[in-house]
Amino acid sequence: MTDPVPVKVMVVDDHPMWRDGVARDLAEAGYDVVAALGEGGQAVRVAAAVAPAVVVLDLQLPDRSGVEVIRGLAGTAPQAQVLVLSASGEHRDVLEAVMAGATGYLVKSAGRAEFLDAVARTAHGEAVFTAGLAGLVLGEYRRLASGPATGEGAGAPQLTDRETEVLRLVAKGLSYKQIAQRLVVSHRTVQNHVQNTLGKLQLHNRVELTRYAIEQGLDG
């Protein structure tokens, strides 16, 4: 890290060995690990005080679901970018977490270099898309598109042809650089496309939640 002020990172993982290992890696790479915790509720409260720029979050916590923690963090630490680091094979969980506002997802078996790169990108506000996450997001858009014309299907976000193309290539494991080469566009353009697909899904999710809240009479 060459930044004069180290980036503040919070690590939330209930497995002590993992938590310590991740925290050590981050500290060695020059990050300021402001908190390393094992519980979701605690993490949401502490985040208000330590104001992390990045939260590395495991989805399998004893007290809260990943989605609840991400929603909670949005309230107590709105500036924080959430990177989901999960050993979970639970596809639904990962997708829900990303739709709730996490901007990246990495499997725990990813190497150290890959992990640090992901944290750096998350800190810069970039979406961290693994092939697995791209497959999930692609699947979610298709599910929304094939839904009924009324209700959920109406107003559901859609991918442009180019976005679909980019997402498919990411899901097939091509790097942004390879995609840029293949589609003859800039690296930055690829990145924007990926970011847009996630942004539309998160926005849709917020709209759906609001609509649900209004329908259920939770607004007043």
Partner: peptide, 11 residues
Amino acid sequence: APDVTISAPAD
């Protein structure tokens, strides 16, 4: 396997 990544929908 470690070098096989499987991407699929959530459902």
